[in-house]
């Protein structure tokens, strides 16, 4: 059964990828991207990679199609047909690279093999000792936020840098590297009564679910990354229905831009506090006499930092993109 589900999902995945290449029209491609995200999330679920599936659910099928849609809104829907003959060079390059990658997989250990390097190096220690050392049920969170906390700090910095880069590229002129709406158009020509009323009911639940995911990362799938994305999609939904000026009044761009940095700082400061006590960077045992409790507090803090940064950066990117197309509109 598992094999059947996996192979069908993989076939659908390949078909979607093929369709993405063939289809013309950017809106159609965006929709296929979202289908691709949904399929990979299902695939990750069947592989038992719940945390990855969660991220893919929120990012691949939720936020990234939205950002692509905003881009389509700004640049128009058409995709010019490639002129000229077949792109022979590209085909040759892609074939060679693909062949090399496939040859590369031949050297990999078989799927699920117990003596694969990935399963013999540090993984047994994580699996056997994380219960005693960290004391939380979700091993993925233990690895992410404690054993490999330094790597995760790097990832958060990458996200932060991406947000800064988007701001630098799309900044509204004359506003010191910030993307804020310059004008206040009147309310929409036609209100979306149905959508607005239903979303009024759903938005608080989306936001609260994000916070639930944030704080239950220790017990179930999820954590700061997923929570941040879900929170931001609640805000984006509000922005889509009520217009950019309204959402900017509720969630001020200046505040969001600050929060993006605050999240990273919270993460880094948590690490520095350990150093003040003469322990290595990001060693959480300083927070409490009982090391397991210390780990708890530390993980909660760094996950909060991750969540704040991710939510803010995605909101900032949304503001920058939406500002772009509202300018094209005006």
């Amino acid at each position: 059964m598992e094999l059947l589900v996996n192979s069908v999902l993989l076939m659908l995945l390949v078909a979607t990828a093929g369709a993405l290449v063939v289809v013309r029209g950017l809106l159609a491609s965006t929709m296929l991207t979202s289908v691709y995200g949904l399929l990979s999330a299902s695939f990750f679920v069947t592989m038992d990679a719940v945390d990855v599936a969660f991220t893919e659910a929120a990012v691949g099928a939720g936020v990234s199609p939205l950002l692509l849609l905003l881009t389509v809104a700004a640049i128009g829907r058409g995709e010019p047909r490639a002129a000229g003959a077949l792109p022979i060079l590209a085909i040759v390059l892609v074939t060679i690279t693909g062949a090399l990658l496939i040859i590369g997989t031949l050297d990999m250990p078989p799927f699920g093999s117990a003596d694969a390097p990935a399963h013999t190096h540090v993984a047994p220690r994580y699996l056997q000792l994380s219960g005693e050392e960290i004391g939380i049920p979700n091993v993925v969170t233990s690895v992410l936020a404690s054993y490999r906390a330094f790597d995760t700090l790097g990832e958060v910095l990458v996200i932060f840098t991406a947000g800064v880069a988007v701001l630098l590229i799309l900044a509204t002129p004359g506003q010191r590297g910030s993307a804020r709406p310059r004008y206040t158009p009147g309310s929409h020509s036609e209100p979306h009564t149905i959508l607005q009323v239903v979303s009024k009911i759903l938005i608080p639940f989306i936001l609260l679910f994000a916070l639930y995911v944030q704080f239950h990362g220790e017990y179930g799938p999820g954590g700061g990354f997923q929570a941040g994305v879900i929170f931001a999609s609640g805000i984006i939904l509000y922005g889509l229905l009520y217009g950019l000026p309204t959402v900017c009044r509720v969630v001020r761009p200046a505040v969001v831009e600050t929060l993006a940095a605050v999240g990273v700082l919270l993460y880094g400061t948590t690490g520095l506090l350990a150093m003040l006590d003469g322990r290595p960077f990001l060693d959480y045992s300083v927070f409490a006499a009982n090391p397991v409790l210390g780990q708890h507090i530390g993980i909660l803090l760094v996950e909060l930092g991750v969540g704040i940064t991710v939510a803010s950066v995605i909101t900032v990117i949304y503001y920058a993109f939406a500002n772009q197309f509202e300018m094209a509109e005006g």
Binding site: G62, L69, L202, I230, L237
Partner: peptide
């Protein structure tokens, strides 16, 4: 999560 955010892209 999907049940909550699925319809955002249609909007």
């Amino acid at each position: 999560v999907y049940a909550l955010i699925n319809y955002i892209s249609v909007i």
